[in-house]
Structure formats: structure tokens, C-alpha cells
Design a protein around this nucleic acid. Structure first.
Lengths: 172, 172
DNA sequence: AATAAATAGTTGCAATTGCAACAATTATAG
DNA sequence: CTATAATTGTTGCAATTGCAACTATTTATT
């Protein structure tokens, strides 16, 4: 059919086994886990995952600023801002302005927020435990190490270096 | 990191170590990897991740219907429908109606689509290789097994309803 | 001190996504 | 055969998100 087929013979020399492709595996698994958890949280407590994350991190590190929360939770600062605003509206956390730097906020759980955390945390930990059911202690350790290592590698590699794009694409 | 100054909190013995919480680790890692890849694809080829996935799976399994693509890629059928529409617009894939069941579509890469796959696939595989750099063969094997096992567990646990589901949960 | 640069957080707007309703077609029941 | 149910794919609408511009405050430069 095709004349002068420059690089490849038929269709499948470049085929990717999507099922075995690590980024794909991670994405599928993460989406399954996240949506399972998100469903339970929203159904039972009216919480989104960003909201839940903020509650969790403030339960452990009270007094963080929005920026620090964003750093610790790996969330966008806009997402933090909006989730904090909702949580304040629901009176789940307190918000103050740092006296020595009035740009910064000081966030901490309210009594109500701590009570909610007390309900949500066991659920979360139970889900994790069920996920890991069947994993030995050594397996869990290896998994944790591997995930951290991958994260470190991903951080190093970063935005996937841009060479000069061959501009073979539609601009726009 | 630094030691938590947890001594003063009165009622939070339920604090979660977000950093060690598996669903959180998975989400952070998956987001890092996905956005790195998405950035490169969109920059170089004008592809979104859903579009790239469809191309990848059709490269390997030509002739699938939209439904089958959705199943294989773990994407929502709406996302598939829209991505297919864009890809058709860019003439990257062919679309036909199945003769024996005119509801079904028959999707396959166009010549242009195969050429694009030929460019994208090495990039994707290279990124994966760099991610896994430093992992022994045995480590990779263990990681793959662990991720599949987790996915299987997540599928079994499902939408996280009550902890113990009464014997018959199926609503079919 | 005055101006410029940097940082924290918010808001507007556009693009993406998810859910549900829908039309078209095929399968099943009576 | 007809009516009903189920399945495939698309579309409309609302909610979410991401990016950039913006305000307010602090730090750095001259």
C-alpha cells in the first residue's frame, strides 16, 4: 500500500502495552481508590477530597498557613483557598491572620472540625487497611519505598524536558 | 521532617499521617506523573491524555467500539466520545458503524494516527524507563504485582459502602 | 525614603469533567 | 407482532478546575 515506508513496516511496531505502562497503571489505580474514598466522604460527611486533606493535615499540624497546607498536601493554592473558604463556612476550621506577616493566614481545626476528623480518620485508615490486606509487612515496606522512589524520580525528571518541538502540530 | 509538636492538642488522637497514607501517596505520585506526561504531549503533539490513551489502545487493538475503548482505558464513555470526536476532527482515526449492530462504532487509527503513535510511543516508553531507572528487574516485577493486587483489592472493596456489606450487594 | 520586586491569598473566566437525559438501535417478553 | 427493556453513543447543563490577573502586604534595591 504505502510507498517508501520510511521507518516502520506495518502498524504495530510502535504499539504500547497500555496495560503494562506504569503511568497508566498508576492513574487507573489512583482514580479507583480516590473515587471510592471521595464517594464515601461526600456521602457521609459532605467532604470533598481536597477538604478532607486539609482537615487531615491541620489535625496533625495546626497553625499552618494556606501556602504550607498547599505544600504539604500537594494541592494547588487555588484549590486550598477555595476548600478553606468552604470549610470556614461550615465552621470546621478557624482562620486568623498572622500578626507578624499579615499576608499569611493561620489555620487550625475548630472543635467541630476535630470531631469530624475523629469520625473520618478511622474510616480512612480502615479503607487503607483493607486495601493492604494480604500484604505482608515487608511487602508494605517495599511498596512504600518504591512509591517514594518513583515520586523522587518524577520530581527529578520534572516537566519532561522540552526540546524544540518539531511543531508538527496544530498551533492552538 | 520536623517533629510534630503534637503535645498540646486535646482531642486529636486520631490524627492521620497523610504522608504515609497510601491513597494520598498514590494520588500525589499519579498526578505528578500524569501532568508531566500531559504537558509533554500537549506541547509537542497537541494531545490530551484521554486522546493519547485512545490512540495507544487503538494502535494495539484496532476495530474496537467506543464502549470497548472505554473499558480498556478505564475512561468514562463520555470522555471517550468527546476525545474520539476531537481525534476524528484531526483525522487521526477512522470511524465506522458496525454493520451487524448499527449502534456500535468501529474505531481504528488512520495513517496519520499511526504516524503520530510512532512518534509518541517512544517518548512515553522513555519516560517510563527514566521513572524506573534504578529499579532492578525484581523490583519492577514486585511493583507491578503490587499495583495489580491493589487494583484488584480496590475493585473488590468497591464504592466503600458499609464496612461489612450484607451478603448480597449486587443490585442486578 | 521611595520604588521595585516578591509573596500570600483571592477572584474571574475559560476549559474540562461528570451526571443525567436523550435518540437510535437491538434484544426480550407477552 | 407489539410493547418493553436494555445498550450504544451523543448532548446539555451544572459543578470543578486551572490559569492568569488582581489586591494586599512584605522584602529588597537604590
Amino acid at each position: 500500500m504505502q510507498a517508501a515506508n520510511s521507518s516502520s513496516d506495518s502498524s504495530v511496531d510502535t504499539a504500547i502495552d497500555l496495560e503494562g505502562f506504569l503511568p497508566y497503571r498508576l492513574s487507573v489505580l489512583s482514580n479507583m481508590v480516590s473515587s471510592a474514598i471521595a464517594g464515601a466522604y461526600s456521602e457521609r460527611f459532605g467532604l470533598t477530597i481536597p477538604e478532607w486533606r486539609i482537615i487531615a493535615v491541620l489535625g496533625r499540624f495546626p497553625g499552618l498557613s494556606a501556602r504550607e497546607v498547599a505544600d504539604k498536601t500537594a494541592m494547588d493554592k487555588v484549590a486550598v483557598s477555595r476548600a478553606v473558604s468552604r470549610l470556614r463556612g461550615a465552621q470546621l476550621l478557624h482562620h486568623a491572620t498572622a500578626p507578624q506577616d499579615r499576608r499569611r493566614s493561620i489555620l487550625s481545626l475548630s472543635e467541630k472540625g476535630r470531631a469530624l476528623l475523629g469520625q473520618v480518620a478511622p474510616l480512612a485508615l480502615d479503607y487503607e487497611a483493607r486495601l493492604l490486606d494480604g500484604f505482608s509487612v515487608a511487602d508494605r515496606q517495599r511498596l512504600a519505598v518504591a512509591l517514594l522512589k518513583l515520586q523522587e524520580r518524577a520530581r527529578e525528571i520534572g516537566p519532561l524536558q522540552e526540546s524544540q518541538a518539531p511543531s508538527s502540530v496544530r498551533t492552538e
